[in-house]
Design a protein around this nucleic acid. Structure first.
Lengths: 234, 234
DNA sequence: CTCACTTTGTTTATCCTTTCACAAGCTCAT
DNA sequence: ATGAGCTTGTGAAAGGATAAACAAAGTGAG
């Protein structure tokens, strides 16, 4: 069992957390936006502001991997982008498999955020006979029965699970058997996996529920304050 | 600017992080699964195992809010579920607005994870005239032009942004103007917000990119090891 | 009733992440 | 060339989160 969120990696330089990596990916996206606007040089202050972190955080995150800036000047955007792409491993093309072409799955097939940057969903799997054999957004839908075969032939390493929760574990087992090394899991269950596979959970219900906690908390805080004020007056 | 991920809350008891809240939501889901299987009592060991945390972590997380277990016995599932629902604030019904009924948005409308537990998407907004006025999964699509009006009339507090990134900031501004207090953001941009609003980002591209980092890292580690072995033999 | 065995709740210690503070290095005006 | 004014990179301190350890409390067999 290997959860990404509590994973630490040690290089010759130092130990850093999975959180650092997630931030690098965020920096990268923001840098690309600056590049599109023809900005050439950027300081840690600016890039960190639009990424909602402190400048020190940004510099520290980079420092685990080398020195990419010029003192007194800042960072050359073009270079930093390609350095980050290389660090993250997305300078190569990654061929991704998708399991579950329901409403979420087909949304993912159309999602630009993946296709834009070297992350190509190459094939998809479903159990629905109406879908099998057809093309969705240019991607062929296979039967889950052929999952191992297709994935092994294509030598794929990354998969996305977008199935209903009840079958997610079964799918994960099949994927691991076929040699998949990383799973992006949208099904709201904690998958049991072996140590060879990295799991990253995208849990929308959890996110929404914790958001609600904070909104609710704020609300009751305000109500209590109001009551206190009333009792002062009374 | 108020990011959920780096938020800490202080009660009379102690300070805890947003991560604690996300874990509570996870425990809750797993507890519901146990309840469906007619389990009545559970120990911190069991519930923590299926949530991928340590038993101490689980007990610590609960301890911020009170004592819910019986020593020597464990936790009564039914009670713990309703306590957690109360803590998270999802014992009440929350009326959620959705902005952007594209492929992702309509997937969210159909997503069971929300509708199952007191989280109801009540209305949706889009700019596409072909969609406005129609019903998607029983939810009426309004024009974004009427956003403020509809949200204020309905007194809604939570919204989901599932638009393209370019318009996300504009939508967020409109939502805040209409009195929205929490935003679940699927658009891959860092939103600028005032301190009255909580933002929770669900960033699928970041997740996938950081997953790829770990898979890639593992791969190059193995290749290096193989090379070392070869040079030993040579 | 008593004692061995569980399991929770919490204090204490450890570890890790973030922030602070500053030295090192670059640029440009004079 | 030189010094003022930036900005980076990083050692050290501070702050939080996790883990270890243990006390408190319940159960059940004998």
């Amino acid at each position: 069992m290997r959860k990404l969120s509590q994973h630490t990696i040690c290089t010759k330089k130092k130990c850093f957390s999975a959180e650092t990596i997630r931030r690098l990916s965020l920096y990268l996206r923001n840098l690309r936006r600056f590049k599109e606007n023809n900005v050439k040089i950027i300081s840690s202050g600016e890039i960190s502001k639009c990424s909602n972190v402190s400048p020190e955080q940004f510099r520290r995150d980079l420092s685990y991997f080398g020195e990419f800036g010029k003192r007194g000047v800042g960072y050359e955007i073009e270079r930093l982008i390609s350095e980050l792409e290389s660090i993250l491993g997305i300078d190569k093309e990654w061929r991704v498999a998708l399991v579950g072409v329901g409403s979420l799955g087909s949304a993912l097939l159309r999602f630009e955020g993946f296709s834009k940057f070297h992350l190509k969903i190459i094939c998809a799997f479903d159990i629905d006979n109406n879908k099998i054999g057809k093309n969705f957004s240019g991607v062929k839908i296979h039967s889950v029965e052929n999952l191992a075969e297709v994935i092994k032939t294509d030598n794929m390493e990354i998969a996305i699970i977008a199935t209903l929760p009840d079958v997610a574990q079964d799918v994960a087992d099949k994927l691991m058997g076929a040699g998949i090394k990383g799973i992006l899991n949208f099904a709201p269950v904690a998958l049991r996996t072996n140590d060879d596979v990295f799991i990253s959970d995208v849990d929308m219900a959890c996110e929404l529920e914790s958001l609600i906690f904070f909104v609710d908390q704020r609300k009751t805080d305000k109500e209590e304050e109001k009551e206190r004020n009333l009792s002062f007056e009374g």
